[in-house]
């Protein structure tokens, strides 16, 4: 009876130990392979993490680069500072911003442009696009059409691809 109890305890210890061992190895392999080891918790790879601040705006008027603003809208240039708090360069100078106002049509950040003749391939293609190295602060700007009478709205962006959206208040100056 005593032997049987001891065997039972041994088997219980053995099974629990094996489960812990397997789970520990899974964590190790997961974290060493670039992940966090935790399911659904992203990866340990280096990434950019861009924090955007609104610096101010400038009214451009009703036309911009040959494009006429929609009726009841004006072009504004919004200026931002962007700080890369991550540990890898950002391949763009700023994360993508989308805008929302009190009404869905307060801000337009895209519009039709006149069709341009096909451009010849430029020398050093790819080296003109700005980037943002880690630990540094750059500047960026974006032109949008804002409905007349609207003076404030919100820009929404994600500092990196797996982070939550961040809202940024924009007050036109």
């Amino acid at each position: 009876m005593q032997n049987r109890g001891r065997t039972l305890v041994s088997v219980v210890f053995l099974v629990i130990g094996a489960v812990f061992l397997a789970a520990g190895l899974i964590f190790w392999v997961g974290s060493a392979g670039g992940g966090t080891g935790f399911f659904g918790m992203g990866s340990a790879e280096k990434e950019a993490y861009c924090v955007v601040e609104y610096l101010g705006s400038e009214e451009i008027g009703s036309s911009y680069e040959g494009v006429q603003a929609d009726e009841g809208y004006s072009f504004y240039e919004l200026r931002f500072s962007v700080r890369n708090e991550g540990n890898r360069e950002a391949y763009r100078e700023m994360p993508y911003l989308y805008y929302k106002g009190e009404n869905y049509d307060d801000v337009h950040d895209y519009w039709d442009t006149p069709e341009e003749p096909e451009e010849e391939e430029v020398l050093f293609a790819g080296y003109y696009e700005p980037c943002l190295p880690p630990g540094r602060t750059g500047t960026a700007s974006q032109v949008v059409q804002v409905k007349d009478g609207v003076s404030k709205f919100t820009a929404v962006y994600a500092p990196n691809y797996d982070s939550a959206d961040t809202e940024l208040g924009i007050v036109l100056s």
Binding site: V9, S10, L14, G24, G37, E47, E85
Partner: peptide
């Protein structure tokens, strides 16, 4: 069994710690 159990606890603990460190150093700022 006790040795396997102790090894399991040790490997699991260090594995969780490694995972947490990796998570802390990941996409986060």
């Amino acid at each position: 069994s006790v040795i396997i159990f102790a090894a399991g606890i040790a490997v699991l603990g260090s594995g969780i710690r490694a995972g947490l460190l990796a998570a802390a150093g990941s996409a986060a700022q």
